[in-house]
Design a protein around this nucleic acid. Structure first.
Length: 841
RNA sequence: GGUCCUAUAGCUCAGUUGGUAGAGCGCCGCCCUUACAAGGCGGAUGUCGCAGGUUCGAGUCCUGCUGGGACCACCA
């Protein structure tokens, strides 16, 4: 130990900036490229969406993960702890549109001199796709800087040299390579099929991106004419889809409609003849028990359409408006009354028409019902038929589904019950993973299509790029064997215009971070990874998709463990959301309470448990950090006593308790329970300060072997406790460490329990007596300096034996003038107080 | 409709093989005790959601119910 260099007035002010700089300049968290897989602990950190705002939810989860990372580092592991930025995708596009006042028009050509106006104009400026992508990159670069600053301030021990972005060339290469491999193995395929479609973003969306919203609607009771019989009445919330009706359907067991099965009816207004079918999915309880099947009102329609082998009569376009011309067999009139209208307007008009014709029975009955939305969208999804790319994920393949469930079993979940969400999701999959998006800022689908003599694309044999050429953009790169001037010409080629879903890239985060596509040596050192920390809301997307990709590509689980953090709630325990305006931004809190204090709050949240933003906890965290400074200053004020032995019973008791503490914290951390480790360390530390230090103070100030023992024990206890706190409070522990140690505490070894053979009960017993003396003085409303003229204690001989070992310290700490240990009697503590000392003038 | 979590002091939450209810905050009182007054010491506070069951013994295990939260499914 070097000579302590303790400041007179220790302070927390400015320690974040100071130590961040030191860690940066010394490369404290740099990955050791020479380490082998068994020496490495690799973390598949969630790449935060940089186009979103910084919020406490991120701070919460990342601080918890960092505690685990720091623990592993102190255990001697070489950390592979990269950070990614998720800048790919729709949130960025939307932010760029609003921020610069532009919109992407892929038909325009690149303008190298384009600069967005200083103020976003009212009418968005149309710009080319390359220009648009440039702006996306420019804006995300700024956002990423802000994120890195926040993370540094928070003290995340990531290796900032290992950052990646989900739109960067490495990510594009990995995404495209993995996709081409999927295609090669038959795991990726294109299909023309009814797809959930967002009419505002004009893109297909995947099952994982859906959410239900409870929306108002109304049942319209409408009659379908029947030859030689009474009309059949259905109830529908979407009468505007009557021209898209292809059949009616009822449950096979429904006696009311059994006679109709196999017959036909005519649609109102249009008079189109449609069959009446039976299908078990029809619910006799709902509406009139018989439903109209349209192409397509919802996913149930798709199921019926597919399983009952019905024709297609599409009427809704990709812009969400009624198509200009009716489907085959649907009369021009009154279709022309609806053509070009939005679904809402069309509904209004058709209801008028139905009322006029008498086909609408009674008034529409208002209801509320769940409607599917794109989670980022504002209007209900429509179902349109389009050609899309899919990756098999077990959604329509029982074998693969079972394999995916098995992967979920294999993964170690923290907390374990989070596995149920995975299983719910995998069991409930209803189709393969739709990965193509009709958007601009994403990784392009790396394929071209040959054009036949009439200029029509031939989709069944796409042209693939050479893997060495990746990443490519088929809209500007020329396929092998063609010249650029053949683009779009008969006999030439066409690039696939779509990009991949953002999850199709981020599902490869272990491969991207580990540079799978360009550095197999590195990848082998870090993969499969050790830990995937993430939020519960993206189990169905990120976690599941990552498991799918690793399973298909490498036939392994991508990581051994996953920690699922809880939600952060606002101080009133409501879920934080931008729309409620209750989002708490982290930076002011980091400044007010200090990073260690905010980390303390985050790490107090149990794994997987929802936790409210709690300024009280942050205050407690700050108090703890301050206390560490002061207690350390006190302990380090004593001589090093390097030659001294710990001999005193009280000191041995402390060290034994310390050994048990170290064992307990280690066990908690090994189970990924950082919160328990923190709680234990904290509890011990306050006892250390309040009881042990008070008891030992006088002896420590003295000299001789007894003093040496105390000094040595104090020093050991400080040393160990600092290290136990280091994963949680990296700044203050590093600060104190620097007063008396060389090197960083974050590379010091994690404390191993060393049992000196003391009896921890010695400390608890004497602390209990001390508490009773304090209580007596407190009750008498006198200062703690007031002498105890007589202290008589009766107890079992074992208890008295412990007290007799430490009576010197007890007498000093309690200001006891006469102590008597009484054997052979019942348990009692008798305290006689003297006069309080005269106050100094 | 299915699944999961949750219910302990005014508040936030611990309570890990079943053994006499805990912490912090807040509140009240005392103390400027030479590490710490942006501090220290002490105090009060609970039919452990409800009803059964297992057990010598249940906050803890089992069953049912109720409240709160989340996820999945359904969506005419």
């Amino acid at each position: 130990m070097t000579a302590p260099n303790v400041p007179d007035k220790p302070t927390l002010d400015g320690i974040e900036e100071r130590w961040d700089q030191v860690w940066e300049s010394t490369g404290a968290y740099a990955f050791d490229r020479t380490a082998t897989r068994d020496e490495i602990y690799s973390i598949d950190t969630p790449p935060p969406t940089v186009s979103g705002s910084l919020h406490m939810g991120s701070v919460f989860g990342y601080a918890q993960t960092d505690a685990i990372a720091r623990y592993q580092r102190m255990r001697g592991k070489k950390l592979f702890y990269p950070m990614g930025w998720d800048d790919n995708g729709l949130p960025t596009e939307r932010r760029v549109q609003n921020y610069y006042g532009v919109r992407c028009d892929p038909s325009l050509h690149y303008d190298p001199r384009f600069e967005p106006p200083a103020e976003p104009p009212k009418e968005p400026i149309g710009i080319s796709r390359p220009n648009f992508v440039e702006l996306c990159l420019r804006l995300t670069a700024e956002d990423e800087k802000a994120f890195e600053q926040l993370w540094r301030r928070l003290g995340l021990s990531v290796d900032w040299a290992q950052t990646y972005t989900t739109i960067g060339p490495e990510s594009q290469r990995a995404s495209q390579l993995a996709f081409l491999n999927n295609l090669e193995r038959g795991e990726a395929y294109a299909a023309e099929a009814p797809t959930l479609w967002d009419v505002d973003f004009r893109t297909a969306v995947a099952q994982a991106e859906l959410e239900d919203r409870e929306m108002p609607g109304a049942y319209h009771r409408v009659g379908f004419a029947r030859a030689g019989g009474d009309p059949v009445f259905i109830e529908t919330t979407r009468p505007e889809l009557i021209p898209a009706c292809v059949a009616l359907v009822a449950h096979p067991d429904d006696k009311r409609y059994q006679p109709l099965f196999g017959s036909t009816v005519r649609t109102p207004l249009f008079g189109v003849e449609v069959p009446v079918k039976a299908h078990p999915l029809a619910d006799p309880e709902k509406g009139s028990g018989i439903a109209m099947i349209c192409t397509f009102g919802d996913l149930t329609d798709v199921t019926w359409w597919r399983e009952l082998d019905l024709p297609v009569r599409s009427i809704i376009g990709r812009d969400g408006r009624i198509l200009p011309t009716p489907p085959d067999g649907v009369p021009e009139s009154p279709y022309d009354e609806l053509a070009g209208k939005s679904t809402k307007q069309a509904q209004k008009r058709i209801v008028e028409l139905l009322a006029e014709s008498g086909d609408l029975v009674g008034d529409p009955k208002p209801i509320t019902h769940p409607v599917k939305f794109f989670e980022k969208g504002d209007r209900p999804l429509e179902v349109v038929t389009s050609r899309q790319w899919y990756i098999r994920n077990g959604g329509r393949d029982a074998d693969l589904n079972a394999q995916m469930l098995k992967r979920g079993e294999e993964l170690v979940w923290h907390p374990p019950h989070m596995k149920a969400r995975y299983e719910n999701w995998v069991t409930g999959l209803n189709g393969d993973w739709l990965i193509s998006r009709q958007r601009f800022f994403g990784v392009p689908i790396p394929l071209w299509y040959r054009l036949d003599e009439s200029g029509e694309p031939t989709y069944d044999d796409p042209i693939r790029p050479e893997p060495s050429a990746l990443p490519i953009d088929p809209s500007s790169d020329t396929p092998p064997g063609f010249a650029e001037d053949q683009r779009g010409k008969p006999g030439g080629f066409l690039g696939d215009a779509d990009v991949m879903d953002t999850w199709a890239t981020s599902s490869l985060s272990p491969q991207i971070a580990g540079r799978w596509a360009e550095d197999p040596d590195l990848f082998a050192r870090i993969f499969p990874m050790d830990l995937r920390p993430q939020g519960p809301e993206i189990i169905r997307t990120w976690l599941f998709a990552t498991v799918v990709r690793a399973h298909l590509e490498h036939n392994v689980l991508p990581w051994r463990d996953t920690t699922i953090n809880g939600w952060v709630l606002d101080p009133d325990r409501k879920k934080m959301s931008k729309s409620k305006g209750n989002v708490v931004t982290p930076l002011p809190l980091l400044e007010e309470y200090g990073s260690d204090a905010v980390r303390y709050w985050a790490c107090s949240g149990r794994p997987g448990t929802d936790t409210a933003v709690d300024f009280g906890q942050m205050k407690v965290g700050r108090k703890l950090a301050t206390k560490l400074l002061n207690a350390s200053k006190f302990v380090l004020g004593f001589p090093t006593a390097s030659a001294g032995e710990v001999t005193d019973a009280l000191d041995l008791a402390l060290l034994e308790g310390l050994a048990q503490l170290a064992a307990s914290c280690t066990e908690a951390f090994d189970g990924h329970d950082y919160a328990r480790a923190l709680e234990r360390a904290e509890e011990f530390f306050w006892t250390f300060c309040d009881d042990y230090i008070e008891l030992v103070k006088a002896r420590a100030y003295s000299s001789g072997p007894a003093a040496d023992s105390a000094n040595r024990a104090l020093r050991i206890a400080l040393d160990v406790q600092l290290r136990l706190f280091a994963p949680f409070l990296p700044f203050v522990t590093e600060e104190v460490w620097s007063w008396f140690q060389d090197g960083s505490i974050h590379h010091a070894p994690w404390p191993r329990p060393i049992h000196p053979g003391g009896d921890p009960e010695v400390l608890t017993t004497v602390a209990d007596v001390l508490a009773q003396i304090r209580k007596a003085k407190s009750t008498a409303k006198v200062t703690m300096k007031t002498p105890v003229t007589s202290l008589r204690i009766g107890a079992a001989t074992t208890v008295l034996g412990r007290l007799s070992l430490v009576q010197g310290d007890l007498v000093n700490a309690g200001v006891v003038e006469h102590l008597e240990l009484v054997t052979g009697h019942e348990d009692f503590v008798e305290i006689v107080l003297g006069e309080p000392p005269a106050k100094k003038a």
